[in-house]
Design a protein around this nucleic acid. Structure first.
Lengths: 178, 178
DNA sequence: ACGGCTTTACTCATCGTATGAGTATTCAGC
DNA sequence: GCTGAATACTCATACGATGAGTAAAGCCGT
C-alpha cells in the first residue's frame, strides 16, 4: 500500500520553488545559499540537503527536470516549475506567515521573492503580514490579561515584546519600500 | 566499527535532564508538557517522542533507570540523573544561549529551571544572558554599519529589532525577580 | 454490578529529513 | 605539467519524530 503523498511543503521547499522560477540546475541553485548572498544570510544548508530536497519536489510533481548534456562536463539536470509548482509557490508568496517564529526565515524569504517582483509586491506582502501580526498581538494581549502565574506572564511578555518589535520593523519596511 | 557517540545534546534533551532532577518515570515527565503547564507553553511533543528521547539519554549514560513493579499496574521505569547527566545539566543551566533564535524555547526553559531554584539563580541567569545579548547587539550593529545592499540591511534591521526587544524583556525580568 | 471510557504506562516498526562521504570531470593558476 | 579548486551529482546511513499499538486499572453512570 503506497502511503498518501504529503500535502504541506516545508518553508525551505517553498524557497526552493521560488528559486526555480528561473529554470536552473541544482548546483546553480546551491550557489544562492552562499553566506554572502541574500538567501545565504537566512538559510544554511549542505549541498546534499538541497539535492535531496529537490529530488523530493520533483517526485511530488512540483518540479520537472530535463537533462542537458554539455560537451564534456557532467550533464545538467535543469529543473523548472510545473503548473502545480507554480500554483503552490504563488499561494505561498501571497499569504502572510502564521507565527512569529516563522518571521526570521520564512517571512524574510517571502519578502526576498516579493521584492524581486518590485516594490508594490513587497509592500502588499508587508501589509498583509502587518494585519496578521496585529491579530497575534491582540491574541497575546488577551492571554496575558488572563494569565496569573508569574512564569506564564514572563513567557507571554516575551512573546508580546517580539511581536511588537516585528510590527515596528514591518512599519519601517513599508516606509523603506517607497 | 561503532560510530563516535554524539557530544552535543539538543535543547529538548537538556530540558528532559532538567525534569529528571526529581527522579520520575517517563509517563510522569510527559505530563509536564501538557499545554497548560509551563513547559507545555513552550514545547509540544508526542508521547512517543519523549520516550524515544529518554531512551537515547539513557543509552548515552545521562540517565539511569530502575524498574519499580507496583502490584498490578504496569511496572514503572524510574529515571534519575547519572553524574554525567547532572554535570551536563549544570553546565547547560549556567550558560546563556548563543543565539537570538534560541531565546524563545531554550532560554525560557533554562529560566524555568533557574526560577525553581530561587530568584537569585534566575537573576544570575538573566544577567549572564543580558551580557551575551549585548554582545550580539554590538556585532549586529557593526554588520549593519557595513551592509550596503538594501535587502541585507532589512534583514539586519529585523534581527537588531528582535535583539533590542530581548534586551528590554531581560531588563524587565531582572526587575520582576526582585 | 457491569459495560464502557479514560488514564496509566510503555513499545515498536517505520518514515522522512539531513548528513557525510564519495565520484568524476574540467578549469584556472603557478 | 601539476595541483587545487570548481562543476555537477549520487548514495548509504544516521537520527529524530511519528503513528499505531498493547494492556491493565481506575472511574463513572445507570
Amino acid at each position: 500500500m503506497t502511503s498518501a503523498p504529503k500535502t504541506q511543503l516545508t518553508a525551505l521547499e517553498l524557497v526552493a520553488l521560488g528559486l526555480v522560477q528561473q529554470p536552473a540546475h541544482a548546483y546553480e541553485l546551491f550557489q544562492h545559499f552562499s553566506p554572502d548572498l541574500p538567501l545565504g544570510m537566512i538559510w544554511h544548508l549542505k549541498q546534499s540537503h538541497l539535492y535531496a530536497l529537490l529530488a523530493r519536489l520533483e517526485q511530488l510533481g512540483y518540479l520537472a527536470a530535463t537533462v542537458e548534456p554539455q560537451g564534456a562536463r557532467p550533464p545538467r539536470r535543469v529543473l523548472r516549475l510545473t503548473d502545480a509548482g507554480r500554483a503552490t509557490l504563488e499561494a505561498w508568496l501571497a499569504a502572510p506567515v502564521a507565527h512569529g517564529r516563522d518571521m526570521r526565515q520564512e517571512f524574510l524569504a517571502k519578502l526576498y521573492f516579493a521584492a524581486q517582483r518590485g516594490p508594490e509586491a513587497a509592500r502588499a506582502l508587508v501589509a498583509r503580514q502587518e494585519a496578521a501580526t496585529r491579530e497575534w498581538r491582540a491574541d497575546m494581549q488577551a492571554q496575558l490579561d488572563n494569565a496569573a502565574q508569574p512564569y506564564s506572564r514572563l513567557v507571554l511578555r516575551y512573546r508580546l515584546g517580539q511581536i511588537d518589535a516585528i510590527l515596528t520593523w514591518l512599519a519601517e519596511c513599508a516606509a523603506t519600500l517607497v
